[in-house]
Amino acid sequence: MSKHPVLLEISDRIATVTLNDPERRNPVTGNDMIAALLETFAKVQADPQVSVMIMTGADPAFCAGGDIKEMNDPDSVFRKEPLAAAQSYVDGVQRLPLALYNMDIPTIAAVNGPAVGAGCDLTMMCDMRIASERAKFGEVFLNLGIIPGDAGSWFLLRRLGHQKAADLTFSGRMVEAEEALELGMVLELVPHEELMARARERAAVIAAKPPRAVRVAKRLMRNAERMDLPDFLNSAAAYQALMHQTEDHHEAVAAFVEKRKPNFTGR
């Protein structure tokens, strides 16, 4: 394995994060992947020059989830006594959904191959998913006598609705790329060789928007998931009042009136 389990590239306000343990299909256990992802997400979140993040895997897989071979290791989280095992989840893989959920920038999963178990859940933690024709998805935990311990059920229900999420959870079956599109698991299906170009094309549309407004819009969507309407309207009014005072808003209005392309600065 490369000594860098996660690769980060930032260009044109787009951060591209690549899970980089291809020989083992980019698992999140049995390596330093979780810590590396958390460090990378924090760096991306804190960078005002980033407006959108693409996450993908080094071919041939997106992410194999947990390393099944590690489940036989007596020193692994899978063999610890219950309280210690639960704390290992809290201190480990459960930090990933919190980090992705709390990101103020939009996130796109460019699913280049199999996304299995925690790998499937990792895609669901992103705002949007674009899939290669080689992509496969599997919520396979029950096949191994375990359940999604990484908040996968929380995200799957919200992305697909109860009935579809129940089917995938209880059957533990693999979903091919075309069915994933039909189910609404992915926004778009593209040829494998076009995946990253298409992901960057979609990301570029977002990156061209006013940077602060993009982040506030993401926060507003996050609020909409958990607030009732009166509280949400108060939140929207407060955010909107702030946006009216930004230089980028004034530039957008001026550019519209003057029929020219706006120049956004993030102020």
Rank of each mutant, 00 (worst) to 15 (best):
L156P: 05
H244D: 10
P114Q: 02
K69C: 09
V205M: 15
S76W: 08
L83G: 00
V190P: 02
R267I: 07
A237G: 15
A35W: 04
K80F: 04
C63S: 13
E81R: 06
E201N: 04
R24Q: 14
D167V: 08
D150I: 01
A58I: 00
E188R: 13
P230V: 12
P48W: 11
N72P: 00
V77L: 15
R79M: 14
G184N: 06
G113E: 06
P262R: 09
N223G: 08
R226L: 06
M221P: 00
C126S: 14
Y101P: 00
T29F: 08
V253M: 10
A204R: 10
H192M: 01
A255P: 12
L38M: 09
M124P: 11
V116A: 04
D121W: 01
H250C: 02
E251D: 04
L242C: 07
L160G: 00
V90I: 12
T107I: 09
L83Q: 12
T169I: 07
T123R: 02
M71H: 05
D228P: 05
I206R: 03
L37W: 05
P74I: 09
A131D: 10
K136G: 15
R159Y: 02
M185K: 02
F137R: 04
V140T: 14
A254I: 10
V116N: 07
Q163K: 13
H162I: 08
D12G: 01
Q49S: 12
G152I: 06
A217P: 06
G138L: 09
V28A: 14
T246I: 14
V140H: 07
H192G: 07
